[in-house]
Amino acid sequence: MSSSTRQLERLLALIPYLQAHSYIPVAELAAEFDVPKKLISEEILLLTMTGTRARHEEMIDLDWDAFDNGFAHISNADFLGRPLRLTVLEGASLMAALGVLSQLAGSEYQELIDRVSAKIHSALSSANDSGIDIHVSGPRADVNDAVNAALATGRQLRITYATDHSDAASERTIDPSNLTVERGHVYLTAYCHQAENQRIFRLDRVLQAEVLDTPITHEPDDGDLEIFNFGQNGSIATLDVDKQARWIVEPCQTTVISEDTGGTRRVTVHAIDEEWLTRLIMLGGPHIRVVEPNHMAERVRAEAVAALNAYDIS
């Protein structure tokens, strides 16, 4: 049902688009609409079954010779020469995306984004708000301003950063290159002078940021950086997770192996590193147990013993 609605939206967009792009190669059309060539070809054929029969008994015409040679050209379709207003989902998704940008952008883009939002709003098919709201766990306002100022002027930043996995704060000098929102968080890609490499920083973990006078010395790499790099540094553990502790592993990259009648699941979890995984398991207390590897079980136990010793209990 849902893919059928998407198709209806595409068919309606296709008719004016084809008229504005005479004899467009079908391959190019497929790329523009981001669907397989076979599908878009079928949809063009479907259009020839439609028309304004009410008054003229007229159907949309296709230049068949051109179509056989891989080009699309339609005629008899001037009743739909201009696209329709944005459908409910088209409008809601774009408005939500603009909302994300608005939360992310510095003040210099704010007015521009507001202006675009107002124009898109005037193109919606209905004044009804179908409100999709994407909340971004953003940085503190002063950090956000500093980062945007540094990006705009091409200067270095001095930041205090709390890494996720080591749970310790560190001071770094970085050359910021761009901001990304992914999975509800804002990330800053930058060259880190301490690591002497490109790094990705989660902005809400930047505790302090100060714009330096020095211009950046490293331009951004073209290479793709993975934020969630479970590859070489990551480790995998198998855990038994009771029902009441599922929420703890839910946000992690896990695979469920089996589930017993009591709702306890055996899962494998991909961890950024073992220190982080230790904390995750301890958060579950008795409701998360390590099946393997053995040294992980040992590590968790040792951490609990160390804490008990610190309380003077053993």
């Binding site: 998407r6 981001d34 994300v100």
Partner: peptide, 25 residues
């Protein structure tokens, strides 16, 4: 830039048709 927010998701289809509509005008 906003359209990229949904890239690779099922909502991406709706954004793609929006872009093509805007391009048409």
């Amino acid at each position: 830039v906003a359209a990229k927010v949904w890239q690779g998701s099922a909502m991406g289809d709706a954004v793609t048709t929006t872009l093509r509509k805007l391009q048409t005008i």
